[in-house]
Simulated scan of single mutants.
Amino acid sequence: MEKIIKEANETLSALENTLSKFDTAQINAVPFKGSWTAGQLAEHMILSNSGFLQVINGPVTETDKPADFMVAQIRNDFLNFNVKYDSPEEIYPEDRTYNQPELLNNLKQIRDGISASIADLDLTKTCSSYELPGYGFLTRLEAVYFVIYHTQRHVHQLNKIYSELDSN
């Protein structure tokens, strides 16, 4: 339990810390053709991770598989930086001006919520409110690892965005 709390906190904090490096102008600057801005990437993470927080805290059923059954697959999929994925429409960020302090505050609230859920809930239960395309219904443990690996993927992208903008 301590391991997953630590891993989630470190990953979600890394997202906040990386976003904090951007200055006001950089948050909404397009770094290269086809890329989101740092603000859009942060908004995507807020939409995704807050959605997963709701799923984790939502209705559950008993689990008929190992609680970590999909973790390795999720890790392999999201930490393969050679593959590009299209964001589902419901978590696609708007093309607008983003406010960095507001983004950071939302990310911190989600991090706190994920930590509380890990500490307070039975992670072996299966979340029944949302079936993730390609993965099915995830256990709470798998859902937490989805948040971790998806966030790690986007921290990697955010660092690339920062490097591109910082070098210009």
Rank of each mutant, 00 (worst) to 15 (best):
M1K: 05
K3E: 15
I5A: 11
E7T: 14
E16H: 11
S20F: 03
I27K: 03
F32K: 14
K33R: 11
K33C: 07
K33H: 08
T37A: 02
G39P: 05
G39C: 03
Q40W: 02
E43H: 01
M45W: 08
I46S: 01
L47D: 04
S48F: 10
G51M: 04
G51P: 01
V55P: 08
I56W: 08
N57L: 01
D64K: 08
K65Y: 07
K65S: 06
K65T: 05
P66E: 14
A67Y: 15
M70F: 04
Q73H: 12
D77G: 13
N80M: 02
F81L: 02
F81Y: 04
N82Y: 11
Y85H: 13
P88N: 13
I91D: 14
E94F: 05
P101K: 05
P101F: 03
E102F: 02
L104S: 05
K108D: 12
Q109V: 06
I110F: 05
D112M: 04
G113T: 06
A116Y: 15
S117Q: 09
I118E: 09
D122E: 05
L123T: 09
T124I: 08
K125W: 04
S128H: 09
L132K: 10
G134Y: 00
G136A: 06
L138K: 02
Y145P: 00
V147S: 07
T151G: 10
Q152F: 00
Q152N: 02
V155S: 00
E164Q: 14
L165M: 14
L165G: 12
S167G: 15
